[in-house]
Design a protein around this nucleic acid. Structure first.
Lengths: 343, 343
DNA sequence: ACTGGCACTCATGCTTGGTGAGTGCCAATT
DNA sequence: AATTGGCACTCACCAAGCATGAGTGCCAGT
């Protein structure tokens, strides 16, 4: 029994099932692929593949469909890289080139990815953790409140309103703010956010004692923003594509939609991927740790300006998915948007 | 034939149909409502109501269901205000009180509204148009680029990066920026955004000629932000509630999901409502101008700090909806979130 | 190791007939 | 004139029965 042919059969099953969304039988396989053997032989191969847990039959005397393990094998060993058409490449380039600011880039990216893959696209805003401080601005708001604005190298702006308890309209307060402004910037600009938080922790002992209380409060507030990175956001598009693929989910699509609303979950999924280089990661079905997404597959990768990967992006769809095409699209979009972000 | 009883029948039909989601017949009606008449009489009334276009039968010999016009009549004339339970009120208050900044307020609000109504909630970020300028900050970004930060009275921060073409690290540039900073703020702070844009238009003639070109560029950029209000954002929650109500939509829920992704459309729908005071507006089925939403109903209202209404919020669900409860929830949430925003 | 043949399984789709909720209409009653 | 009981009729819904055919597993032959 030829090992090679058995894998060819697996590949053929995956391809046909993805295309037709119907269990594929031995005869149908022969019509669409030149395997050079008879139906009976294919049946033997199928029985072996089923034994190995790579395919399964929904019921007696129906065709076979790939299992999660089957898709995994296909993705790892059987699928080549499918290049994008040049029309698609051009569409990506022109669409993203028209973006006018960071929000727009993210918005266009997520819509592009959704329409390209015809699935649900997820794009994480460039994350704070790997970016660094470009500037920190302190703006008195009229009363006793102070607006702290943090600007990162990725162009992201975070703001925070701080109750100081001091009357900031007084002249002494203005002078104090001016010196604070330069001190804080001196201690943070250019550092990664984590380092900057550390740098702020050492500042209080070096400055005018009169401003110490205020500075401590600002430092605490900044540290919170820097370390907590609570502000991470994700954007979705193409949710309606779930409907089209509705019957592919073993369960209803309700739980899937619910899971997609839990942005924290999505962030976690996108977060792990940014740590492992620029490869495209695929999570298939039950490989996924989150209950609502166990009948879906995720195709994700990292993106960002320069060599630093600062965020993740990807799509989620049914396990019955055209992995080569989807992976190519995800990779291409990530590459282009990274280029755009690098200015 | 008693006009009053006929309307009582309509009310009963709406209530029963909303509860059971099944066409209601004359006999079933009698079992659940004390109308004091016989089934035959109810049938006559039903025939009359059908004649008037307020109810319809999905097919011969099934019960009746309300038409859009029937719901409209019910909302306008037959439904009392249903007060929230005190437990619900407390839940609203405690949840929203815990919010730490504007993003968090919006996020909590939309989730709250979704879980309260068990429908899709839509919350618009406080809009720029009706708020006014609190502060404008100019921050050089190291090279020739300048970051313009706009802070509004509603606590919103808008940023914009500007290519000046000048080397901003030079000392003369720094002085120029300082004077620009005070000029721009002097011309805009406290004004509504529209007025501020106008004020900026007049500035260029009053300042140091050397800075004129730069100021013009800044003014143009600001004007664009102020007037275009392109940045308006909406946030959704509870999309999975659409599934539960899936069969209520004449069409599939696909088009509905698509429409919900068109944030521009949602903004338009929320926008018109902010102009007509703090009443709760209801759009029923085909009353809605947008194709994808013609089998849904929208319940919306305005909210915002103080007497100015600065944004809209609401829910979208099937026309078969518990209007009194939903309207009460929308109104209550709007009231509370407005109170929170007023600080 | 592969192939052809064959009996068997079982989901799917169609038809059929029965059931019951619900209607419309009419003549009788108040 | 409004209301009511009665009655024939309609039609969606369900369950059962039946045919179909795709697909399988297995075995004996090459």
């Amino acid at each position: 029994m030829s090992e090679d042919r058995r894998l060819a059969v697996l590949r053929a099953i995956v391809q046909d099932y993805v295309e037709t969304s119907e269990p594929v039988g031995s005869k149908a396989l022969l019509e669409r692929h030149r395997l050079g053997v008879s139906a009976a032989t294919v049946r033997n191969d199928m029985a072996a593949l089923e034994e190995e847990g790579l395919i399964a039959a929904p019921h007696t005397s129906a065709g076979r469909i790939p299992t999660d393990a089957g898709y995994r094998f296909f993705v790892d060993r059987l699928s080549g890289v499918k290049p994008l058409s040049s029309a698609e490449k051009r569409a990506i380039a022109t669409l993203l080139d028209g973006a006018i600011d960071l929000d727009d880039v993210v918005d266009r990216t997520v819509r592009l990815l959704a329409s390209l893959t015809r699935q649900v696209a997820v794009v994480q805003y460039p994350s704070l953790t790997r970016s660094s401080v470009r500037h920190i601005e302190l703006v008195p708001l009229g009363g006793t409140r102070l607006l702290v604005v943090l600007i990162t190298t990725t162009g992201r702006v975070e703001q925070r309103i701080l109750e100081t308890g001091l009357d900031l309209t007084e002249e002494t307060a203005e002078r104090m703010l001016a010196s604070l402004r330069s001190d804080v910037n001196g201690a943070t600009v250019g550092k990664t956010l984590a380092d900057a938080a550390g740098g702020l922790g050492e500042l209080p002992t070096q400055v005018d004692p009169a401003a110490r209380g205020l500075l401590a409060a600002i430092a605490a507030e900044l540290t919170e923003v820097l370390v907590e990175q609570r502000e991470e956001r994700v954007v979705l598009a193409g949710t309606s594509n779930l409907i089209r693929a509705g019957e592919d989910f073993s369960t209803s699509i309700g739980p899937v939609l619910e899971a997609l609303e839990e942005h924290v979950v999505l962030l976690k999924l996108l977060g792990t991927v940014t740590e492992q280089g620029d490869t495209v990661a695929v999570r298939i079905g039950a490989e996924n740790p989150f209950a609502g997404l166990q009948s879906t597959s995720l195709v994700t990768t990292g993106y960002g300006a320069g060599s630093d990967l600062v965020a993740g992006l990807g799509v989620v769809g049914p396990t019955r998915m055209d992995y080569p095409t989807t992976m190519a699209a995800v990779r291409a979009v990530a590459t282009y948007v990274s280029r755009i972000l690098a200015d």
